[in-house]
């Protein structure tokens, strides 16, 4: 009882502190007053400390199984293991909002403290973050308190949703929610730069860094979500184009576009306003995602999270869209103001000698493709909602996304192969002639696009000779090979320079960033191969087997041996035993009679080439109804995503640096380089 009141007290104090922080920051921003800026920051940090106190209180209530608190009763029971009881913190509506806020406070405090030397920028960013935090705190205090008490304390809780009772619960939601909340930080800095009329380049480095943090967290969250869906939901796939999945993908896509467009901004002083639009869109899309999850307005696998908070988030979304739209219209139009910094392009080689495709052109095309892809996904996601308003509700399925997304996907793969090879400002005039005369030379043995063409051609021939006839594979795999060739030759160029160069021990930040980005590109290419391979070559058999009978899928023969009955955390479990060579696969079904639900536990045998994936759908006497899948190359998706995140970590685990000057004309700094 006292614990709940303490928690509510923490939230109330946090609300007062962030509201005060917003006012202090506003004053600091308007007057450029350093002291009020410090007060605003300190109030924000104090608010965060109170939110941390509330979180610790909720955790104590959960672990202490304080069933007087409604949240604890609704999301745990005595049979739940200790880690999952702690994970119920973000498993329920109110707790997940508190967790969102906790991470917003942590990321926001660090970001604001690191930017405090820029008084107006930090003050306006503080204002935006405090306003966002205040919204969440109002909701937590007034509408959905995690510390609401029950009139009568029950002896046991209702328990966590059976689907969530899995190891994935410990990893997927924390990262995804962290990603969602972290998008608020670059948004706040972008808005602050617009409102405060920032000049110079260092706010770009700051915003980029925070966008990268949010993007990294979201990458991990999305991958873990796919991994979890694959391991738990039992339909043999990892991505169902569910509205909530789409909602998590869209801010990630927008930020991916931003991380590339910002390089044009850093290098050439262009695309400044567009970059801001992307950062702001990412945040708005993340709020839209939260709205879709909470409102239950669209049918989704995440329907367990539906709550009456939908209208609140819709209102917040409207306010955020209006405010950011107004600020963009007010301050965002002149390119020079928002990132061009009025710095004129000063080409060392006259522009007339350079023409044709350029690095910045590749970035622009990449941004157009990603923006169009995001718009197509947004349209598909919101179509049921929009069409329902005017008449019959229309719903699009995965085939819509696959058909619409395919050209963009191919275009992006092509750019991965070509873009890094293009010089800034475009190709010089004699480029094509040099390419013809010295095919393996321009601008060096390891810089030729012919390697990519060679890799694509060899892969295509290899696939055709190997008897592959599926068009998606014949188109994408050569593109993936070309992209790999491009990345690897960039590493080769780096290595050869390192061996030759006098300052070989020097490893600058830009080089780290460059090679980190290529590692991320390698990751994306491996993921792409995994996505296409698993989609095109997947095989499925639905069978009912008696003991001793076998089923063969994808060259693997599984023999059903029988079923076993047991219990798991006090719940009845039926397990089927299947023998595959020397291995045994044991898919099972767990019953939760009190909740009226039965959940399948899938058995997966995974190798780098394919996964054998077995779902026990039913048992009839001694017979077992099974769905058996052969899913090729799925492990490539997890491995590629790991490389992607590793690349970003390697490339960016340093202090942000300001780009000192424009790149000289024709410099060959690659995608990752600033």
């Amino acid at each position: 009882m006292l614990l709940a009141e303490l928690g509510s007290g923490f939230l109330l104090a946090a609300l007062a502190l962030v509201a005060f922080s917003a006012l202090a920051a506003l004053r600091a921003g308007r007057r450029g007053d350093r002291r009020w800026g410090q007060v605003g920051l300190r109030a924000f940090v104090a608010g965060f400390v109170c939110v941390a106190g509330a979180s610790a209180t909720l955790l104590a209530a959960l672990l202490g199984r304080d069933f007087a608190v409604a949240f604890v009763t609704d999301h745990t029971d005595r049979s739940l293991s200790l880690p999952l009881t702690a994970a119920a913190f973000y498993g329920g509506q109110e707790g997940s909002l508190l967790y969102w806020l906790l991470l917003l406070g942590a990321c926001g405090s660090v970001a604001l403290a690191s930017a405090r030397h820029r008084v107006r920028l930090a003050a306006y960013a503080n204002l935006v973050l405090a306003a966002v935090a205040a919204f969440f705190l109002i909701v937590l205090v007034a509408v959905a308190s995690p510390f609401a008490l029950l009139p009568v304390t029950p002896p046991d809780g209702v328990g966590l949703n059976p689907v969530l009772r899995d190891g994935g619960m410990l990893v997927h939601p924390p990262f995804l929610l962290a990603g969602y909340s972290a998008f608020a930080v670059p948004f706040a800095f972008a808005m602050a730069a617009l409102v405060g009329g920032e000049e110079g380049n260092d706010w770009i480095a700051l915003t980029r860094r925070y966008a990268l943090v949010a993007w990294g967290l979201q990458s991990v969250g999305l991958t873990l979500g796919m991994w979890w869906a694959y391991h738990v939901l039992g339909w043999g796939g990892y991505w169902g184009w569910d509205p909530v999945e789409n909602a998590a993908l869209m801010p990630w896509l927008a930020t991916t576009a931003y991380l590339h467009s910002v390089q044009v901004q850093e290098r050439r002083g262009g695309l400044g306003s567009w970059s801001l639009v992307l950062v702001i869109s990412a945040f708005l899309l993340s709020i839209l995602g939260t709205f879709i999850v909470r409102s239950g307005i669209l049918p989704s696998v995440h329907s367990f999270a539906v709550s009456p908070l939908g209208p609140w988030f819709f209102g917040f979304l409207l306010v955020a869209v209006t405010a950011s739209g107004a600020v963009l219209a007010w301050r965002g139009t002149p390119e020079a103001r928002s990132g061009g910094d009025g710095r004129p392009a000063a080409p060392a080689v006259p522009e007339r000698e350079r023409s044709g495709p350029s690095r910045e052109g590749a970035f622009v095309l990449q941004n157009v493709l990603i923006a169009a892809l995001t718009a197509a996904i947004l349209w598909g996601t919101l179509l049921p909602l929009l069409s329902g308003m005017v008449g019959r509700e229309l719903v699009v399925g995965p085939s819509y996304y696959q058909r619409v997304g395919a050209p963009f996907f191919l275009g992006l793969l092509g750019l991965l192969a070509v873009g890094p090879l293009l010089p800034w400002r475009g190709l010089s005039r004699g480029w094509s002639r040099r390419l013809l005369v010295h095919p393996l030379q321009p601008p060096g043995f390891l810089g030729s696009p012919l390697w990519a063409v060679l890799a694509a051609g060899l892969t295509l021939v290899g696939l055709v000779v190997g008897g592959v006839h599926q068009l998606p594979v014949l188109v994408t795999f050569p593109l993936v090979a070309a992209g790999l060739a491009t990345c690897l030759q960039e590493y080769g160029r780096g290595a050869s320079r390192w061996l030759r160069g006098p300052g070989r021990a020097r490893s600058s930040t830009s080089q780290r960033r460059r090679y980190g980005a290529y590692l991320a590109h390698l990751g994306v290419l491996i993921v792409a191969a995994g996505l296409i391979g698993s989609h095109v070559w997947q095989q499925e058999r639905q069978v009912i087997l008696q003991p001793g009978q076998s089923v063969t899928v994808g060259g693997h023969t599984l023999t059903y041996e029988g079923t076993l009955s047991g219990s798991r955390d006090g719940h009845p479990v039926t397990t089927a035993r299947l023998r595959m060579g020397a291995e045994t696969l044991e898919p099972s079904r767990v019953s939760y009679p009190s909740l009226g639900q039965t959940v399948s536990r899938i058995a997966i045998r995974s190798t780098p080439f394919d996964d054998v994936y077995v779902v026990l759908t039913d048992t009839r006497g001694r017979a077992a109804a099974l769905n058996v899948f052969d899913n090729p190359l799925v492990s490539w998706i997890w491995a590629g995503a790991g490389l992607l995140v590793l690349g970003v970590l390697i490339g960016n685990l340093t202090r942000p640096e300001v780009v000192p000057e424009l790149a000289p004309a024709g410099s060959r700094a690659p995608v990752g380089a600033r």
């Binding site: 006292l2 009141e5 303490l6 509510s8 007290g9 923490f10 109330l12 104090a13 007062a16 502190l17 005060f20 002291r35 009020w36 410090q38 007060v39 300190r42 109030a43 104090a46 400390v49 109170c50 106190g53």
Partner: peptide, 30 residues
């Protein structure tokens, strides 16, 4: 009790939060 806790927390937070302003006043007096 909730309000009491909240008020106590705000009292506790006030000195460090307002310190940049208080320090200026102290310096002016000094």
């Amino acid at each position: 009790m909730t309000w009491v806790f909240a008020a106590l927390l705000l009292l506790l937070a006030a000195p460090p939060v307002l310190w940049p302003l208080l320090a200026r006043r102290e310096r002016r007096r000094g």
